[in-house]
Design a protein around this nucleic acid. Structure first.
Lengths: 181, 181
DNA sequence: GTGTGCATGTAAGGAGTTACATGATTGC
DNA sequence: GCAATCATGTAACTCCTTACATGCACAC
């Protein structure tokens, strides 16, 4: 069976202790969403595929009358995950950000609109920094103290990236304002 | 007709003077690829759609015996582009970077493999900075001197982002090496 | 008792990629 | 003469999203 990044994402989430599909999705939204988004409609079939391949095992784990399945990674799954982590072959990263495409063509706009566009963009990146610091870092920081350091390193990295962008946009905004004054 | 970011990408490329589908694809690879990749198999149908909608016009423009079509943006196309540039509604940006997912789960690896992984990643980001500076910036810089400033601003932004990531990875690498020593 | 969150799945559709198919031009 | 690049398009496929369908648990 062919394993793709979403497979390893699920495998990895199970490894760090998340158990149900719903829980995996929630965890991924809080942590890996920024560099690999995943929807619930991907998680459930992926769990089925991985179980069929023997990389994970599932058992019923109802919560009262509410159905729930708890999965755990098997030795084979662990091995597959480690092989992938050591693998140096990567597909090229992909970014799709409509706002930056817009910015690329912003020369077509009058100066005022350019400034407004840049400001909006800066503000949204600043907001994202705040969101990461408030929602992601407290959790990843706790994990770091427990010896799991990479999630927090990634959270800091994300925050740094958004800060860098916000900073560059702030500079650009100032330049545009000065030139139009 | 519904216009999506690739439509505006094509429209924008025509606006800045690129004419054939092939030329648009080449230009996009050099400039907007980092925040919105596009394949030739998207460009040609998109050109047909835009022409049908009256946003661009195409004429045959053979080069010797080699067929070629030259497109130009119409007034309606220009208006649509400007409307989009002013529009503040964005779909959320999407990043898919397998390498960062790998890094997120790197706690599962022995220290040596962690260091190797971080180093590889840092090196590839440094290489990307170099690539942008050598291949993209000379062109965007020339455009900037001619009064088209945003492409160069975006090139600098891309370069800054990759530098930031490389810097953070370098720091992480040092930390991992120190702790294991 | 009501809304929010927990919980699992499927079906249909859309967006984008790879591979295929074809051929001319230019520089070495 | 040969390779790289220019040039246009289509078909099949993959991946992923949105919408649908269903129902329990818990806090207010």
């Amino acid at each position: 069976m062919k394993l793709r990044p979403p497979s390893y994402l699920v495998l990895g989430m199970l490894r760090i202790g998340l158990r149900s599909g719903y829980e995996i999705k929630r965890g991924a939204d809080r942590s890996t969403k920024h560099f690999w988004p995943m929807s619930l409609a991907q998680v459930y079939p992926e769990l089925a595929r991985l179980e069929e391949a023997g990389l994970i095992t599932g058992r019923d784990d109802p919560h009262g009358a509410r159905a729930r399945r708890a999965y755990a990674i098997t030795d084979e799954g662990n091995e597959a995950l480690l092989d992938w982590l050591r693998d140096s072959h990567d597909e090229p990263p992909q970014v799709r950000d409509e706002r930056l495409v817009r910015l690329f063509f912003a020369d077509a706009l009058p100066r005022d609109d350019q400034i407004a566009l840049v400001r909006r963009l800066r503000e949204s990146h600043e907001a994202e920094v705040t969101r990461i610091q408030e929602e992601v870092m407290p959790i990843s920081s706790a994990a770091e103290e427990a010896g799991t350091i990479f999630p927090h390193a990634l959270a800091r990295l994300s925050s740094d990236i958004f800060s860098t962008i916000a900073g560059a946009l702030d500079e650009l905004e100032t330049r545009l304002s000065d030139e139009s004054a």
